[in-house]
């Protein structure tokens, strides 16, 4: 554990809590992509199957359980409790265009051709693109509530901080996981456009609205 990794995890945790608070306080899931949340649920479920096979630390186990629990609760809020406020017309990204190629790639490029390892690889690749339905939804509606922007900023920062963690671990421990690093770079790049808008607009008190 190093400072970058810890900050990354805390940023991820903050993102999830911000999203839940937004939905709970406003009693609305407007502007939130249910499809991205389903992809994240797939990511966590696939990656944390190792809860049953290996123990790393109390911290690791608690975070995994929390991430899995909250993402399914988020899906419950979107598709059941606050369903009336869910904007399904704008959540029209075709997720099969992500799942199929990512699944194929996980089969072809992995550390070891073993079931759990392929599933782990699938989760890493899928996570890198799981935010696309959410970003697509914002580009379709042309705007994002400020609280949604905070959520996305925290969520994007998490993987950017992991990149710092991997650079640190490479020099300090000789640790290098090419699959995670490449996927992490892709994931962070997808947020760059959003980071720019966040810094130039949201930090100056304006909400994100894109030209029609």
């Amino acid at each position: 554990m190093n400072i970058f990794r810890l900050c990354g995890d805390m940023s991820h945790l903050a993102a999830i809590i911000i999203l839940l608070l937004k939905m709970w306080k406003t009693r609305s899931v407007a502007g939130i992509s249910g499809k991205s949340q389903i992809l994240f649920a797939t990511v966590f479920t696939a990656r944390y199957l190792d809860l049953f096979t290996s123990f790393i630390s109390i911290y690791n186990t608690c975070m995994k359980v929390f991430f899995i629990g909250t993402v399914y609760f988020t899906i419950y809020l979107i598709y059941m409790k606050f369903k009336a406020t869910y904007d399904s017309n704008h959540d029209s990204f075709r997720v099969e265009f992500l799942i199929v190629p990512v699944g194929g790639l996980a089969f072809l490029v992995n550390h070891e051709f073993a079931p759990l390892e392929i599933i782990w690889t699938f989760s890493i690749y899928l996570e890198s693109v799981a935010i696309l339905p959410q970003l697509f939804m914002i580009s379709k509606t042309g705007e994002a509530e400020t609280i949604t922007s905070h959520y996305l900023f925290a969520l994007g920062s998490y993987r950017a901080l992991y990149l710092c963690n991997w650079i640190y671990r490479y020099y300090a421990e000789g640790f290098f996981d090419l699959i995670a690093v490449v996927a992490g770079v892709v994931q962070t790049i997808l947020y760059c456009d959003f980071f720019y808008l966040y810094i130039t607009k949201v930090m100056k008190g304006k909400k994100i609205s894109l030209p029609a």
Partner: peptide, 10 residues
């Protein structure tokens, strides 16, 4: 049981 494939990150 193979340590090499243990992923210690989230």
């Amino acid at each position: 049981t193979d340590d090499e494939n243990q992923h210690d990150e989230l």
